[in-house]
Design a protein around this nucleic acid. Structure first.
Lengths: 191, 191
DNA sequence: CTCCAAACTTACTTATAAGTAAGTAACTTT
DNA sequence: AAAGTTACTTACTTATAAGTAAGTTTGGAG
């Protein structure tokens, strides 16, 4: 080889992310990554010994992304409404443009067939995400931007659940579902 | 063989339903059905020539069940609140007791890897379900039981999305998630 | 009693999956 | 310049998947 040695690993991770979030753990194989890249399956095994390692890395990466995007808010607070809108825009983009789902969806579905490590990473992601959304809800209510009368944790859970469902229904019923559901979330928060 | 000839087909369908709703299309094989039943894979192929036929039958069955449970209400109306509660109880049972998801979840996740026939059945199920929930919302508002200020279709969509998400999050974060999310749905309807 | 069809089993094929071992080209260090 | 390390490839193994063809048992109809 000659051209882009260093970026192969990143390339693999990106394709694995698309496939994992787009089809689920059992819905893709190493070939789906290697063939379009013009490499061999063994090259993937070199960077990620097992499929478990590969998919764990996908989720870890997602967690890292989330952490870097929300770290500031988690520490110092800020506008809850703009945080929520940013997260909604991110999810909207993943569903409509990338045509993929939150990793939690894919893990939940295949739960019983997954390696422990993947499950463990997903559990951590779920807690990261819920902690973040809970903080957003909490501060949003304090700041008078959001209105709801239950625990912030419960509201965060409900919002996240609704967004998870939106991704699914969009695939079956069409893209317009996403904005309808997102509007309903806003409306239920008094926005 | 000697014992229960006639019920083999039904037995296969029941196991396939559990597996399909529990692990997704790509998360189980014929062996997962045949081995615990003490039969051979070929026996499954006798009743359902392909995996596509089998999974289509699973969804058709689910649609038939829904139709028979909701047919009366769809034709003559009735108490929307009791209809909603019945549906919530059904979903709650599937998640907590049967530990499985709505077929729509599993189809949506594996969408790009599924046979056309399975996708088609799932699309029909999604419209059946949404039509039903829309009717429930519509009548519930007319009867003064529910309160919301958007189209009944949109509210139904949002409720369904939230329930889909509840099933996923329950697997990752624990069973208590389900009742929290369901309570939030009630609350958002003014119940 | 015989024949026949329903409901299987045995035995097989073909395809694809994840994973491994050994070899190789190129850059890196000493 | 020699030796080692990185990043692969080739070639393979083992397991499992869906699906098929041909044979076998069993209960019932004529």
């Amino acid at each position: 080889m000659s051209i882009p040695r260093t970026s192969t690993r990143e390339h693999i991770l990106k394709r694995a992310t698309m496939l994992f979030q787009g089809r689920g753990y059992n819905g893709f194989s190493f070939k789906d990554i290697s063939a379009p890249m013009g490499i061999r399956n063994a090259a993937i095994h070199y960077h990620f010994p097992t499929k478990s390692d590969l998919c764990s890395a996908v989720i870890t990466r997602y967690r890292d992304l989330l952490k870097s995007e929300t770290g500031d808010f988690m520490k110092h607070g800020g506008s809850a409404k703009s945080q929520l809108e940013a997260y909604l825009a991110f999810i909207r983009h993943e569903i409509l443009d990338a045509r993929c789902m939150c990793p939690l969806t894919n893990v939940a579905v295949a739960m019983d067939t997954l390696p422990d490590e993947v499950r463990a990473q997903a559990t951590m992601l779920s807690h990261d995400l819920l902690a973040y959304l809970t903080r957003v809800m909490e501060l949003g209510r304090e700041q008078g931007e959001f209105q709801f009368n239950c625990a912030a944790e419960q509201k965060a859970l409900s919002v996240k659940a609704t967004l998870q469902g939106a991704g699914q229904l969009a695939r079956l019923m069409g893209p317009q579902v996403v904005d309808q559901v997102i509007d309903q979330i806003r409306s239920d928060l008094g926005l």
